[in-house]
Simulated scan of single mutants.
Amino acid sequence: MSAQAVLVLEDGRVFRGTSFGAEGSTLGEAVFCTGMTGYQETLTDPSYHRQIVVATAPQIGNTGWNDEDNESVGPDGSPADSKIWVAGYAVRNPSRRSSNWRASGTLDAELVQQDVVGIAGIDTRAVVRHLRTRGSMAAGIFSGADLADDDTLIGRVRTQPSMLGADLAGEVSTTGSGYVVEPDGDPRFTVVAVDLGIKTNTPRMFAQRGIRVHVVPAGTTIDQVRELKPDGVFLSNGPGDPATADPTVRLTEEVLGDGVPLFGICFGNQILGRALGLGTYKMKFGHRGMNIPVIEHGTGRVAITSQNHGFALEGEAGEEFDTPFGRAVVSHTCANDGTVEGVRLLNDSAFSVQYHPEAAAGPHDAEYLFDRFFGLLDSKKGAQ
């Protein structure tokens, strides 16, 4: 029989269930993800660092765990050192067995092996309704010997640091000089990817297009970037508050000043936006899922996108504004709530989106953005 477990929220709400994965305790920000598939990609996404993820899909674990779908690698780029980044996992009904030809084990066993504390058997619909009403908040999961009375556990939850003001990119980034992902076939271009929490599929998407990728740490300087003589620079996704990322914003400003083509995703969108003069804010409960519609205002095109962010850029749909690098525009917004989902310089030297065109589990509506960046690199090379 599974041990008792509780999910405790900072406002005093307590949900009781059974232990799932490792027993013990964990703290983090409670958020919910509406994806119906791709739980392995979610759990290994570095952007979920220090977050307790509540799955809205009622049954989790059906396809087990495999050695191919992890979205994280080790500090030196080794897939063997991939890890689960979520702080904890809350589900309704974990599958009793896994069934998939690629499965190397079960989800529950992987959570135990990586010491990730979870909870099962709770009403996740009630949790999500609560978080949608009150907003994402500090939380904890406690089970086994770490259980205590509610007041004690609520006190522990309330003492943890806030996600607002959290500087986390350095905790998930590669170290040292980073690593290189070689392209499929002869290299056409070289891109420096600043690792703020990069997902495994991103360098793979570049490699498929003949691009050699130098994945470098979050603290990389402009001189280190220039030494690599890149044709372009990429800013990855990642966790934490973009208001804390001043060094990366300064790096971005210097890249833009050099006229090097730049592409950003998620956290990278917020960094480019800050470099262009926009502010950021913490959203009430964020966007986390695989079914979020985004409008590209220049074309009227709507893409169904995968997203994972709790912070966003300030701005309005189609808004144009001056920057030190030329005129810019808010290029994309969310069809659901108007949140800024992309910015670009009108001279097309830099652009970014808040969502995930590299989403391995889908949807794949936005993959064309990698082709757009390739075209930008090609046109820049042709003009030289």
Rank of each mutant, 00 (worst) to 15 (best):
P161T: 07
F15M: 10
R226S: 12
V6Y: 02
V91T: 15
L346W: 04
P324T: 13
M163C: 00
G38P: 06
F285K: 00
M36K: 15
G310C: 02
A275I: 13
A126S: 12
H309C: 11
D11R: 08
L27I: 12
V302Q: 12
D195W: 07
G342W: 01
P75H: 13
I154Q: 11
G326S: 13
T280R: 03
G362K: 09
W85Y: 12
D76Q: 07
T37P: 10
L251H: 10
N201C: 04
E316S: 10
F142L: 01
G315Y: 01
E41L: 00
G38E: 02
T202W: 11
L345Y: 08
G74F: 12
V157T: 09
N308Q: 02
R372D: 15
L256M: 12
V340I: 09
A145T: 13
K284R: 14
M290C: 02
G178V: 07
G74R: 13
I222L: 01
G28M: 04
R96W: 04
Y355I: 08
N70H: 15
Q114E: 10
Q208K: 14
R288T: 09
M137D: 00
E110K: 14
Y48E: 05
R301S: 11
D241Y: 04
E319F: 09
G286W: 00
S177L: 01
M163K: 00
G286C: 01
G232A: 07
F142D: 00
N93F: 08
Q40M: 15
T190W: 02
Q270A: 06
G118E: 13
G268I: 03
E68G: 06
A30K: 05
Q4V: 00
G375F: 05
M137P: 03
S379R: 15
S173T: 11
P239E: 04
E316T: 09
L111Y: 03
I295M: 14
G362P: 05
S82Y: 09
I119D: 02
V194W: 05
A207I: 11
G155L: 08
S19T: 01
L276S: 03
L153A: 03
K282P: 01
F32D: 08
V353C: 06
G232Y: 08
G35R: 04
L256F: 12
K282M: 00
E29H: 06
K83Y: 04
E316H: 05
K381Q: 13
A103H: 02
D167F: 01
A166E: 07
S95L: 05
L27K: 12
M283I: 03
T159A: 13
Q384R: 15
A169H: 03
E320M: 13
F234W: 14
I60T: 11
R129E: 12
R16S: 03
S173F: 05
A335M: 13
G210E: 11
Y39Q: 02
G219Y: 09
